[in-house]
């Protein structure tokens, strides 16, 4: 007989005990260990994912901040450039203004200098002309300048145009007439002038003679706000014109 029933029962029992023991000592611990490890790996992966996400977040933040910084820097730079340009414009304007002022001042100074020079020249020329005239007249005519001047004045009086003559005649008849000269007129010359005036206006006009050194080498007749004059200033005027032209050139 190949089958021993006691052995069968004992082996079945043995097997069931083995099943229980194996479950207790092998399968459960191993499965638990595997499950725990899988859980742990899953946790670690989740953790890694979380860290990755955090790192990504941080990187994004950093990049955003960087971009903001760049923007800020660019705006600052453009602002600085603008300000520098403005400052430049302002400085140029100020410099231009200064230069204008300076050139204006210089022009004024030049003008003043010119005027001074002009005055000096005028005065000098007058004196020179006077001296030359006096010398020439005395040399040529053997008469004094005053004498000649008086005769020229008398000549002028005679040669007055009609309009002046009539208007002056009206004034002379009503107001006293004064003859001013830069020097004391000698009696003969006073007489010459008196005679010329009387002849001119065909009346006996009473004249009073005054000496005014301010009058530049000349004689003038004034009455009631009107006057007839001859002086060296007329000649000086033409000299002045030519001198001015010379200076301008």
């Amino acid at each position: 007989m190949l089958i021993d029933w006691f052995t069968v029962a004992a082996q079945a029992l043995n097997f069931l005990i083995l099943v229980w023991l194996m479950k207790r000592y092998l399968y459960q611990p191993i499965l638990h260990a595997i499950d725990a490890r899988e859980r742990r790996i899953a946790d670690e992966l989740a953790d890694a994912d979380k860290k990755k996400a955090e790192a990504k977040q941080e990187r994004d933040d950093f990049e955003q901040k960087n971009a903001e910084l760049d923007k800020q820097r660019a705006s600052l730079l453009s602002k600085a450039t603008e300000e520098a340009a403005d400052e430049r414009q302002r400085l140029i304007k100020a410099a231009r203004k200064d230069a204008d002022e300076l050139s204006e001042k210089r022009a004024t100074a030049l003008q003043r200098e010119q005027k001074t020079l002009h005055d000096e020249i005028t005065s000098l020329a007058k004196q020179e002309v006077f001296a030359i005239a006096r010398k020439t007249l005395s040399d040529l005519a053997g008469a004094s300048l005053e004498e000649r001047m008086s005769s020229v004045f008398a000549q002028r009086m005679r040669e007055l145009d009609d309009e002046t003559k009539s208007s002056l005649g009206e004034v002379l008849s009503s107001a006293p007439a004064v003859v001013r000269s830069a020097f004391d007129l000698p009696a003969e010359q006073r007489e010459l002038i008196q005679k010329a005036i009387n002849e001119t206006f065909s009346a006996d006009i009473k004249l009073s003679f005054e000496t005014t050194p301010d009058l530049v080498s000349g004689i003038e007749l004034s009455a009631g706000g009107q006057k007839v004059a001859w002086s060296i200033a007329d000649y000086l005027a033409s000299l002045e014109e030519s001198v001015e032209e010379l200076i301008k050139a």
């Binding site: 052995t7 004992a10 083995l18 000592y25 092998l26 638990h32 260990a33 725990a36």
Partner: peptide, 24 residues
């Protein structure tokens, strides 16, 4: 029966020895 016990013993002792120091 004796050899069965022996096999059981080998299996259980082996399992016990190995699973004693299980690590996760």
């Amino acid at each position: 029966i004796v050899f069965t016990w022996m096999v059981i013993l080998i299996l259980i002792v082996g399992a016990k020895l190995i699973t004693r120091n299980l690590t996760t």
